[in-house]
Amino acid sequence: MSHLVSAVQLQQLQIDAEHGVGAPVRLLDVRWRLDRPQGRPEYVRAHLPGAVYVDLEHELSRRGQPQDGQHPLPALEDLQHAARSWGIDDGDIVVAYDDNSSVPAARLWWLLSGNGIDARVLDGGIRAWAGEGLSIEQGDVLPAFGRVTLVPDNQAALTIDDVEDFARRGVLLDVRTPEQYSGARTVGAPVGGHIPGAVNLPALATLDGAGHFRSPVAMRRIFAAVGVHAQSDVAVYCGSGVAAMHMALALAHAGIRARVYPGSWSQWSNTRGRSVAEGILPAGRVSTI
């Protein structure tokens, strides 16, 4: 199953749907950045024709305490209500995109594909679409309410207790920057460092200079360098619980299934009694929060 689509492939999916030889295509605009979480103004100014805006902070996350992490997963019933409000019906193909290296779009992909939806990400985002000379529209899109029913797969998400000893039996990837991983720099966390045993592989290492995902072959070479292979038991985490899904998408593109620790460093670093490793090595200098 394809997890990514190019702008040209997306256009063909839409043409097939219009001619009744393919499933309906629903476009979701997930404009979001950690330092500017509200992406609706950008969406209103320019988006793919028919695309519906998705609010990552309120529809792809839920409110929680610091010990829950910065972006706790939404309850299934809330996610289903949101998906229906986006106009999704059973059998639809959902294509998500953004203007931020596919990071927020990957969170939507992860949430929907893990709950029985054929979800994909537009490789290169809105820039790739515009770069092909395809049309852009302005304003807001309010679709008719859909009737999709989500079918959950709870195997993809790890709890904080699940991840405690994961590195002893599998490969735990920390996808933050090397500075955040080592503890030299902290972003929105009370302490720096990483989960003991975790291996560092920044999420954006999976993209080329144009913001597109590298080929599956190139991706497998990158993953092999950190000990991840086709049959590896692998899990990923990041800072706030968003970029980890981007790495899960990159792994899926390479044919490797990964689980995600959604609480990520924002939860781990706010939980007393957890161990923290500092330095550039997985074992690092270990202390306790």
Rank of each mutant, 00 (worst) to 15 (best):
V171C: 08
L172M: 07
L173E: 04
R176V: 08
R176F: 06
T177P: 03
P178M: 08
P178S: 09
E179P: 00
Q180D: 03
Y181D: 05
S182F: 08
G183P: 00
G183H: 06
G183D: 03
G183N: 04
A184E: 14
A184L: 05
A184K: 10
R185S: 08
T186K: 13
T186C: 03
V187S: 10
V187A: 14
V187M: 11
V187I: 12
G188Q: 08
G188K: 11
G188N: 14
G188T: 05
V191A: 11
V191C: 04
V191M: 12
G192S: 08
H194I: 07
I195S: 09
P196W: 12
A198W: 05
V199T: 15
V199G: 08
N200L: 06
N200R: 10
N200A: 09
L201M: 13
P202F: 11
P202K: 09
P202M: 11
P202R: 10
A203H: 15
L204K: 12
T206H: 08
T206M: 02
L207E: 11
L207R: 12
L207V: 13
D208K: 10
D208G: 10
G209L: 07
G209Q: 14
A210G: 13
A210R: 14
H212Q: 06
H212R: 15
F213Y: 15
F213L: 15
R214Y: 03
R214C: 05
R214G: 04
R214K: 15
S215E: 05
S215M: 05
P216W: 06
P216L: 09
A218T: 13
A218D: 14
R220V: 01
R221I: 03
I222V: 11
I222R: 15
I222A: 13
A224K: 15
A225S: 15
V226Y: 05
G227P: 07
V228E: 00
V228S: 06
V228Y: 02
V228P: 02
A230Q: 15
V234C: 07
V234D: 06
A235F: 01
Y237V: 09
C238E: 01
C238M: 02
G239C: 02
S240T: 15
A244Q: 04
A244P: 03
A244D: 01
A244G: 10
M245Y: 05
M247S: 13
M247P: 01
A248F: 00
L249N: 02
L249S: 00
A250F: 02
A250G: 15
A252Q: 13
A252L: 10
H253A: 14
H253E: 11
G255A: 06
R257P: 00
A258D: 00
R259D: 01
R259N: 04
V260H: 01
V260L: 00
V260Y: 00
G263L: 06
G263H: 07
S264Q: 11
S264K: 11
S264P: 05
S264V: 10
W265R: 09
S266T: 02
S266A: 08
S266V: 02
Q267V: 04
Q267M: 11
Q267L: 07
Q267Y: 02
S269K: 08
S269L: 03
N270W: 01
T271P: 00
T271C: 09
T271E: 10
R272M: 07
G273A: 12
R274K: 14
R274L: 08
R274I: 04
G279R: 12
G279E: 09
G279W: 10
I280S: 14
I280D: 15
